[in-house]
Design a protein around this nucleic acid. Structure first.
Lengths: 161, 161
DNA sequence: TTATTTTAGGACAGAATCAGTCCTATTTAA
DNA sequence: TTAAATAGGACTGATTCTGTCCTAAAATAA
């Protein structure tokens, strides 16, 4: 169980893609664009997007004019999917996975509790879709500052180049 | 955010202590005894118990006949307290802690979500006391095998020596 | 065809964390 | 005074994290 930078960057990247393709036109975004917009190391982000592509969350388009697009709509993608695509299955439940018959005294109860705690965590991440996350952000943006547009200024900068 | 071996061993050690001091008589248990009973490396466990002692969850008694005792009753100790005493505050909420004004596009919503997910996790661990954990284990023991006693056989072995 | 632009994937590396070990105090009981 | 216990610091090998870099492959544009 962990949420690493990679997972964090992955979600941010997905949020960028989701906000970027406005309505019907699903445009690709290059790694370079995303990395500059989200201020995340480019080659690291490239690796992360490879994982997202392999997991079928984004589609990659090679060659000039290529980049990445969401493979599904934001309402169909959960945050847990994103994170697990990058970091592997989330689990901090130890003894059971290491040895099916755990020999700890009281170990089983502990495993059970950890499993439950982990459930508390993953439930939240499963219930939240990419779309939810973006709507949250929009609420924050419109109440805290006055940029009501779909793209923030730094995103526009990144696109214009 | 992580649950490491150290945290796991710590909870197991605390469970051992709690099960051991039967009723009124709060007896000390040595690291050596606990480590053999729970099959956990002794010197590692010693370090872990130092943390538990510093956090005020156990009291240490030095010298011959010494060892560790719970500082409170099992109903007053939550699993989260134990884990955090060993691993430090549980948090996988990144940007906010690193830089109070997170500059990620959509970062704030993400931070919020992570905070919420973390809450889902810690809630479970806060709500579960050491006593709850032991009762869970007793239910498992009595339904799965037929050692209905307060101490398991391996615990008795550990005490008898 | 060739050059250019993009991702794919593997190798590598420095830093941090994990999971311990070991050694030397220090405290206490006998 | 000796033996038995914890306290605490230093150290270490293994693993994981957080990247970078380089070459290959694919697609486009000239």
């Amino acid at each position: 169980m962990q949420i690493t930078r990679a997972g964090e960057y992955g979600v941010l990247g997905m949020m960028y893609l989701a906000r970027r393709d406005d309505g019907a036109a699903r445009k690709t975004a290059m790694i370079d664009e995303v990395s500059r917009a989200e201020k995340v190391p480019k080659s690291f982000l490239a690796k992360i997007f490879q994982n997202l592509a392999r997991a079928g969350l984004v589609k990659s388009v090679r060659g000039a004019g290529g980049g990445f697009v969401l493979a599904k709509t934001p309402t169909e993608i959960t945050v847990l999917e994103i994170v697990e695509a990058i970091e592997g299955k989330i689990t901090f439940q130890r003894c059971k996975q290491d040895k099916p018959d755990c020999k700890h005294i009281g170990g089983c109860a502990l495993c059970g509790l950890f499993e439950q705690a982990q459930g508390g965590l993953t439930d939240v991440l499963t219930r939240t879709t990419l779309d939810d996350l973006i709507k949250r952000q929009e609420r924050i943006d419109t109440t805290h500052d006055h940029s009501a547009g779909r793209l923030s200024n730094s995103q526009k900068d990144a696109i214009v180049r």
